[in-house]
Design a protein around this nucleic acid. Structure first.
Length: 983
DNA sequence: TTGAAAGGTATTTTT
DNA sequence: TACCTTTCAA
């Protein structure tokens, strides 16, 4: 290994011209090395470091090597170690971030921080802000119903401001200058918005300082501020580190650029940077060519070395990649700085780059697996082959296809730990322990592989619990003495006993033991760990690793928590999850001989003999562009790229370039037309560009609706015994909620309406139902001719209030006040043109064949023969268009209309949603057409329910919102939600 | 030709 | 839920 690496390094040096070698090894003063893919970027840098030290030009501690990623730092240190094994111990090799951290810790007291200040992770930032929400100067970014909805976006803005090295004071100044000169209302509004954002930024920094904490990325910012304000500190650092070397300079952001400028200084700049703009794949404004140009502008006399001799790939691959990247002109260094960066292969010509197109994604996955198998037959090792994907989710079908063919493979994703079965069991155990009423978790735990309570019996216990409105745990405890449940079998009883014994034993320990200890005992006592470790296959190994990883999280909590006990940990975990925290599953053994499936980002810096870039279609690669939820003002951000027209597309193209240049011998690009979505996909423009194909014909046909439906249907689950289909003549009751839930996901319907797994109350439900009840009371009084004043309404609201599910006492108080204020306003506004209801909470029921649809109208108003049905809603809808959209799409209103048609013989003249907080309304005039469509919709769903068809329908949005996402084994990854949604 | 409505889709990753 | 693209209607 060592000699191989050294030999490779020799090759790199041999590839250099005399002048280049001289510059790299012996050069003094600023040096810019532009090193294309596979030309030995790290080699040049490590050689230079080793040379500086071994030639005694620099003492080891005078050399400072900065990288962008941890991975790069480790690799660099290893290679220097091979060159001068013991000579570099004092050399600082690490990331920019770690370096900023070190400076800050050394001088922490100078900037008013204790040296042991805490660094908050991203999820911790959200938790931190949530707890202090009420002290933040937020108005328009803290909407009524959901106080934390914008925190993620706000933090994103702050972190971008930090990357751009914009201080809160600078932002504030800018905003108030804007405010002073804004003339028209639109400009004024924009300026006010930014003033608020700037105030938030400042307040947040203040809060962090008070708490003795900084957030990720802040170390560099604060270190910079320190260096600017204390010239003595800066001088000391410059004295210490006379040589600064930077790897991967193209991915460096503005604050890091500034750090180099300060450290190297204009007077004595002994700085070397190595980079290649075409491989910049992390989107920070002005990175890529912009940073390299900024460096050139800063050090006009810098020596420049361009490395183009490629040791990795065949010329065919390099040419295709070069052709692709030329589409980024003129925003490339090559074009902007007049450099020739065309890569020359030092190898034979090689196989042509291929593009293979398939009809469907499954054909593509299968085809690729077939091609991989072919290569293995030709004598390639599995580890020689890589499948590169653009998004983690794209890997799924390929993993399955490799699995089917029995080809060893490993996938390196970047999240998903909490979704793993073995981790879920642990979480449910802790939840059940922390909250005995949490029947969802208990249910899952009982059904899990640890206790295996038979599902049919478990359902029975659960139904009984629901009927008696008691927690499942209580029913389990009362099982031996319960005559109604005498029919529950012996096996189930025995397993329930084991479960209860396990829980009781653990519960007794809760006050005395730390979370980790308790969890460990559970694993041992239940035999779960033993069973996992006994199995010798790779899958079990992975599971054990994941369990270990979860233990790390538990341990990490124990290290910072004041009281490391289960209830506190569960609360902490819930917050983390809500904040979008989802660590990666455990890494597979890197030495394992397996086909690598990974994202292109993860592949940066790696190489493989055979590379497949899969799913090369528009919208996937390049991915659709997503704009920032909150934009930094453009004139605060220094543009280092001369206003590139489409920065997003350029970055995607660089990413594709990185993917292509990973290949040593063979590169295959694949695509398909049909990815199971309603629309057919177009071939990626990158394939067209790289291979010089004719522009693809426009999408030829639309896929048949039925075909699309069939694709959505997942493989049928083996149905558990109990669920016999309903006989046709049996009556099925359906409510609007049930229909809606079934449409969202049949499995959710099963959880909510058949299993009736009880849910913990969410604050939005408390709020909504209290408002609703109050309004109902008001109209009922009006119907009866009673007076009902504003105060009565407020009183009704408060008496309907349940104190449950709120984030904090302050949050609850704020919601109470908000609700009351909204109701009072509603009362006043309504008094201007009072509704005269003819029905309040009026129940209805009608049949669609043997299905009885039941429900109630909130409010019916009949006047002059016109019938209007109203439904009241809470939740932030703050413009007319949104309200109207909600109404147009409302299944609930459709059901109302159909109900009125069926029961009164005619359609209502108007159906409407009223949004109480904003006073906005959206409505529509029902049509017979629509009613017929609603009826057939109901008929279809009823038929499926009768067949007991409860296959999950995981989807991006539905799963992110679903209350069962913790326990549902089919969860698709949802968007980061900062709030736990309601059922 | 224009505008509104319906319909489809959802990223990667650093510290 | 928010954005974008396509389709439909005027």
């Amino acid at each position: 290994m060592e000699t191989a690496v050294l030999a490779a390094e020799e090759r790199v040096l041999e590839g250099l011209s005399e002048r280049q070698r001289e510059a790299v090894l012996h050069g003094e003063g600023p040096l810019l090395v532009i090193a294309g893919a596979g030309t030995g970027k790290t080699t040049v840098l490590t050689r230079r470091i080793a040379h500086l030290i071994s030639s005694k030009r620099a003492r080891p501690e005078e050399v400072l090597a900065l990288t962008f990623t941890e991975k790069a730092a480790v690799e660099m240190a290893e290679r220097v170690d091979q060159l001068i094994p013991y000579g570099y111990a004092e050399t600082w090799i690490g990331t920019f971030h770690a370096f900023g951290d070190r400076i800050l810790r050394e001088w922490a007291l100078e900037v008013g921080l204790a040296p042991e200040f805490r660094v908050l992770t991203r999820p911790e930032q959200i938790i931190f802000l949530r707890e202090r929400l009420w002290r933040l100067p937020l108005k328009r970014f803290r909407p009524l119903g959901d106080p934390t909805r914008h925190l993620g976006a706000l933090l994103g803005l702050v972190s971008r401001a930090k990357d751009e090295d914009i201080a809160p004071s600078a932002y504030k100044e800018w905003a108030s200058a804007r405010l002073a000169t804004a003339l028209d209302p639109a400009a004024r509004d924009a300026a006010e918005r930014h003033a608020e954002l700037a105030a938030f930024y400042e307040a947040y920094q203040q809060l962090l300082a008070e708490a003795g904490a900084v957030d990720f990325g802040d170390q560099i910012c604060r270190a910079l501020a320190l260096l600017r304000e204390r010239p003595a500190v800066l001088a000391a650092l410059r004295e210490r580190h006379r040589y600064v070397l930077v790897d991967e300079f193209q991915d460096t952001n503005r604050a890091q650029l500034e750090m180099i400028r300060l450290l190297a200084g204009p007077d004595r700049p002994n700085v070397t940077v190595v980079g290649d703009d075409d491989q910049a794949i992390y989107r920070w404004r002005g990175a890529a060519a912009g940073n390299l140009l900024a460096f050139r502008a800063l050090y006009k006399d810098a020596r420049e070395v361009v490395l183009t001799a490629n040791h990795r790939s065949t010329q065919v691959i390099l040419d295709a990649a070069g052709q692709l990247i030329s589409y980024n002109n003129p925003y490339r260094l090559e074009a902007m700085a007049g450099i020739d960066k065309r890569l020359r292969s030092l190898r034979d010509a090689g196989l042509p780059v291929r593009h293979v197109h398939f009809d469907t994604i499954s054909a593509e996955a299968d085809g690729v697996a077939g091609l991989v198998a072919e290569r293995l037959g030709q004598g390639f090792r599995p580890r020689d082959v890589a499948l590169l994907v653009r998004s983690n989710d794209d890997a799924d079908p390929f993993l399955r296809a490799l699995n089917v063919r029995g080809i060893p493979h490993r996938f390196t994703g970047s999240r998903g730990l909490y979704a793993r079965e073995e981790v879920r069991v642990l979480v449910c155990f802790l939840r059940a322990l922390a909250n005995p009423d949490d029947s969802v978790s208990l249910f899952y735990l009982a059904a899990s592989e640890v206790y295996r309570v038979p599902e049919t019996e478990l359902l029975r216990l659960n139904r009984y619990a629901v009927r008696k409105s008691r927690p499942l745990l209580e029913v389990m405890r009362g099982l031996p003495a319960n005559e109604e449940l005498a029919g529950v079998g012996g096996e189930a009883r025995e397993r329930v006993d084991r479960l209860l014994a396990g829980l009781d034993a653990a519960a007794a320990e809760v006050p005395h033991r730390r979370t980790g200890e308790l969890l460990y005992r559970f694993l041992q006592a239940s035999g779960f760990l033993a069973r996992l470790s006994r199995a010798a296959d790779a899958e079990s190994e992975a599971r054990v690793k994941n369990v270990a990883k979860f233990f790390d999280a538990v341990k990490a909590y124990g290290e910072v928590a004041e009281h490391d006990r289960v209830p506190a940990f569960v609360a902490h975990l819930d917050l983390l999850r809500d904040a979008g925290d989802d660590p990666a599953v455990a890494e597979a053994d890197p030495d394992e001989d397996a086909v690598a499936v990974l994202t292109v980002h993860k592949a940066k810096g790696l190489e493989f003999p055979v590379v497949f870039i899969v799913s090369c279609v528009e919208q996937k690669f390049p991915v659709k562009r997503r704009s920032d939820p909150l934009e930094l003002p453009a004139d605060l951000v220094e543009d280092r790229l001369g206003g590139a027209v489409d920065a997003h597309l350029h970055e995607e193209r660089r990413l594709f370039y990185v993917g292509m240049t990973r290949a040593k011998d063979e590169l295959v690009l694949t695509s398909a037309a049909d990815y199971g979505t309603a629309r057919l996909r177009k071939l990626s423009r990158f394939v067209v560009e790289a291979l010089d194909l004719p522009s693809p014909a426009p999408t030829p046909r639309k896929s048949q609706a039925l075909e699309a439906l069939a694709r959505h249907q997942p493989a049928p689950e083996p149905a558990p015994g109990l669920e016999r289909p309903m006989r046709d003549e049996e009556l099925l009751h359906l409510s609007f909620r049930q229909i809606d839930d079934y449409e969202t996901c049949p499995l959710k319907y099963k959880y909510v309406h058949r299993l009736r797994v009880p849910l913990l109350v969410h604050h939005r439900v408390v709020y909504g139902s209290a408002v609703h009840k109050a309004v109902q009371e008001m109209f009922r009084a009006r119907l009866q001719g009673r007076a009902f004043g504003e105060d009565d309404l407020a009183a009704a609201f408060r008496s309907a209030w349940v104190s449950e599910g709120f984030l904090s006492r302050e949050h609850e108080e704020q919601r109470l006040q908000a609700g009351e204020a909204a109701l009072r306003r509603f009362h006043r506004e309504e008094a201007a043109s009072p509704l005269t209801p003819t029905g309040v909470e009026q129940e209805f029921a009608f049949n669609v064949e043997r299905t009885r649809v039941v429900g109630r109208y909130d409010l019916v108003v009949e006047r002059g023969g016109r019938v209007m049905i109203l439904d009241f809603k809470t939740g932030d809808v703050d413009d007319v268009a949104a309200a109207q959209k909600r109404a147009t799409e409302s299944l609930q209103l459709d059901v109302y209309a159909l109900a009125h048609l069926k029961t009164a013989g005619r359609l209502p003249d108007w159906v409407e949603l009223r949004f109480l907080e904003s006073g906005l309304a959206g409505g529509k005039r029902p049509t017979l057409d629509e009613a017929a469509r609603t009826e057939s919709r109901i008929r279809d769903i009823a038929a499926l329910i009768r067949r007991r068809e409860f296959s999950p329908r995981p989807s991006y949005m539905a799963c992110g919102q679903c209350a069962f996402r913790e326990v549902c084994p089919h969860t698709a990854r949802g968007p980061e939600t900062e709030e736990r949604p309601t059922a």
